[in-house]
Nucleic acid binder design. Structure first.
Length: 484
DNA sequence: CTCTGTACTCAACGGCGTTA
DNA sequence: TAACGCCGTTGAGTACAGAG
């Protein structure tokens, strides 16, 4: 399981960042480290007269903790930038919490097999032991528990744990792996921490498959000071808004930096592992709460965050749309083929009466005020009110003003809905959009000539030029492909 | 059959405007 | 200024369907 050569990991939650930062305040002179020596994992605190712990002080701590007197030790600090351990030098000062490894001299492994990061491995094991799906979520106290930190105490050891399910970590894994971090081009090096990354494979159903190796690079994003301090003390005092911000930051990091919108089960585990390694206090249960549940709790929070954000924020992302199409459900009572859009001179749909039309209009007006309107519903309601709207605009004794129309049907002043409205009115090939395009086509050359004549062409013209060039290139390529 | 993701839904929270 | 209510946002539960 662990490396054949004895080595020590002085292991911590923060690394290079705090390593280089000058510490100030009440913690001055106190530095916490976590030592891992093979299967052993010890947390130590070094009191130093200096602002940072010296190499000799760290060496002494390692010798004392593991009884390694007489051995020549190599101390290595985990460097986030390189995702690997780097030897520390005399004269340097180290600021806890920091992540260090100490290797016995002469016995440092030149190649794999690998030293496993024991702390993270144990966390993974705990996560896998209590693994469950979101739908199987059972925290005993229900949603209130998840909302109110004070209810953490409800999770007693007697609370039912979610049933174990197999996953990437549930079976013993040989760590003598061809590491994902070592390619043919890479010289053999000491394994990057966390080493569990090599256990992770892209989720089979994930539309994004290019994220191999992301685990070694992924780091819990830096938090605002208030959230950072609360996380360091276990995260229990975070309010809902802070917790949301924190989860947002992880979502953002994973999606924007790695393009992963569907983390696999193992990847969720890995994120939580990193979280708990970075903030060890979060592992500490309150009121005898099983630690496995704490991990499941954060994992599920993260899963919910991803689920809800995919639905509410990232619904336009190609990977999300692709996935939705793949698993698309048939609506319960949807007609086999969509009904033809109602024509303006038709009677209102039989399903609608005056009251329901008024209801649609009110709802549409409300929806326009929202920051995140239900666009699908808007289109449906606009379609259902088309006949009424056309009758009102065209046949009213006193033609409504633009202000009246805007007030009653604000969505008609939305560009997308305006275009859709035109398409509702016109049928077949003769749509508003096609007519507009045909019309513009007639004057395109003149418009382009006029724009080119300007000393400083407008931004939209430059944008359009770029678009056109791209389109021509695309057509060229398509032509070549078709010829083949 | 199990796992996973989506749709639909509800409830809590917090911001904001109104009113006494 | 405090109390109140409305409403948007967010987290989370449930049902269901597709994939393997």
């Amino acid at each position: 399981m662990f490396c054949s050569s004895p080595c020590i990991l002085l292991h911590s939650v923060q690394n290079i960042q705090t390593y280089f930062c000058k510490r100030v305040g009440s913690n001055l002179g106190h530095h916490k480290f976590l030592l891992i020596f093979g299967p052993n994992n010890k947390k130590v605190e070094i009191e130093s007269n200096d602002v940072g712990a010296s190499k000799s002080e760290l060496h002494a701590a390692a010798v004392k903790t593991f009884g390694l007197g007489g051995s020549e030790l190599i101390l290595q600090l985990y460097d986030r930038d390189f995702s690997d351990y780097v030897d520390i030098e005399d004269g340097e000062l180290f600021y806890g919490p920091a992540k260090l490894r100490v290797v016995k001299g002469q016995e440092q492994p030149a190649t794999f097999p690998v030293t496993i990061n024991n702390a993270e491995d144990s966390i993974n094991a705990e996560i896998s032991d209590s693994g469950s799906t979101v739908s199987q979520l059972d925290y005993t106290a229900g949603s209130d528990f998840l909302r109110d930190n004070s209810d953490f105490s409800l999770l007693t050891p007697n609370s039912p744990s979610p049933p174990p399910t197999p996953n990437a970590y549930s079976t013993p894994v040989s760590i003598e792996q061809p590491s994902t971090s070592s390619s043919a081009d890479d010289p053999p090096s000491l394994p990057a921490a966390p080493l569990t990354s090599s256990l992770v494979s892209p989720h089979p159903t994930s539309p994004v498959s290019f994220h191999s190796g992301w685990i070694t690079k992924f780091q819990i994003p830096v938090q605002p000071p208030t959230i950072e301090s609360k996380l360091k003390s276990g995260g229990y005092t975070m309010n809902v808004a802070e917790r949301s911000l924190f989860l947002d930051s992880i979502y953002k990091e994973v999606t924007e930096k790695y393009g992963i919108y569907y983390p696999s089960k193992a990847q969720y585990d890995e994120i939580i592992t990193k979280l708990f390694v970075k903030y060890p206090s979060m592992k500490t249960p309150q009121d005898n709460m099983p630690v496995g549940n704490l991990k499941m709790l954060w994992k599920h929070r993260l899963q919910y965050k991803f689920q809800n954000f995919r639905k509410r924020v990232a619904f336009e992302i190609a990977a999300v749309q692709k996935k939705k199409l793949k698993v698309a459900r048939k609506p319960k009572s949807a007609p086999e083929s969509p009904a033809a859009p109602p024509q303006w001179d038709e009677e209102p749909p039989e399903t609608e009466d005056d009251a329901s039309i008024d209801g649609h209009i009110c709802w549409l007006q409300d929806e326009k005020r929202k920051r995140q309107p239900d666009f699908r519903g808007v289109s449906q309601s606009m379609a259902l009110t088309l006949a009424d709207r056309r009758t009102w605009i065209i046949s009213s004794p006193q033609t409504p003003s633009l202000a009246d129309i805007k007030s009653k049907y604000p969505w008609l002043f939305d560009d997308i809905q305006l275009l859709t409205e035109m398409n509702r009115i016109q049928d077949g090939e003769v749509t508003f959009f096609n007519s507009l395009r045909a019309g513009l086509g007639r004057y395109a050359s003149g418009l382009i000539k006029a724009c080119k004549g300007k000393r400083a062409p407008h931004a939209f013209f430059m944008e359009a030029t770029t678009e056109m060039e791209g389109y021509r290139e695309e057509q060229k390529i398509k032509g070549i492909v078709n010829k083949q």
